[in-house]
Computed example of a mutant assay.
Amino acid sequence: MRITQGAFSFLPDLTDQQIAAQIDYCLGKGWAVNIEFTDDPHPRNTYWEMWGHPMFDIKDAAGVMLELQACRKAYGDRYIRLSAFDASHGWESIRLSFIVNRPKSEDGFMLEREEGAGRRIRYRTRAYATDRPEGARYD
């Protein structure tokens, strides 16, 4: 099951050249770029681990790509995403976010159904990967 989060998630994985073009676009807009990683890509898990610091002062995609390669070297078995933050007044939020690295095998999610009083039905998702301990989820 392919995790579909962020922009470009229904497209084939972007090449490094395509990622660099997106970074150039973000930097051209004046957005700060950051890199994050996780081994729990649940849709409600918005708190991914940040790789380094947000790159507010980088003007060239090559600097971001160096950081991305370092993150891939350390956490290539996890999900890595790139986000672009617009700090301008009135926006002050993420403008673009997309996955730039995936584990070789994506386990997907289980949909759990719970029936309650009054015919109420609740659903929740649980990642199959969380059955294994953190750091060993995509071995």
Rank of each mutant, 00 (worst) to 15 (best):
Q17W: 04
L66K: 10
L27D: 01
I121N: 02
A127M: 15
K104Q: 06
G76W: 00
S105N: 10
Y25F: 14
F8N: 03
N34W: 06
T46D: 09
Q5Y: 15
R2T: 06
S97P: 07
T130A: 08
H89V: 13
G52Y: 10
M1K: 02
A127C: 11
I99P: 02
Y123R: 04
E49L: 03
G135K: 08
P43D: 10
F56A: 05
A61D: 11
K104L: 02
L27F: 08
M55E: 14
F8P: 00
Y75I: 02
A70D: 06
H89E: 13
I58D: 09
E134G: 04
R2D: 04
G90Q: 07
R137F: 00
R119Q: 13
K73Q: 12
A129M: 05
S88Q: 13
A127I: 06
Q17E: 15
R72T: 08
R119D: 15
T4F: 09
Q5I: 15
E112M: 13
I35C: 07
M65G: 05
L14D: 08
Y128C: 02
N45H: 09
A32E: 03
R44S: 10
A21P: 02
G52A: 09
D24H: 06
L14R: 09
F56L: 07
Q5C: 04
E112A: 14
E112C: 11
P12M: 07
M110A: 15
N101F: 00
I19N: 01
K73G: 06
F109G: 05
I80A: 03
P12C: 09
Y25M: 14
M55R: 14
I80E: 05
F98V: 10
N101W: 01
D39T: 12
E112R: 13
K29I: 03
W31T: 09
R2E: 06
A136D: 10
D16L: 09
T4C: 13
N34Q: 13
D60P: 00
R119M: 10
A117Y: 12
S93H: 09
D24Q: 11
M65R: 01
A70S: 11
G63E: 14
L111T: 11
M65D: 05
F109K: 05
R119W: 06
D77F: 00
P133Y: 03
H42C: 05
V64Q: 10
Y47M: 04
D16S: 10
A62D: 15
M50C: 09
K104R: 11
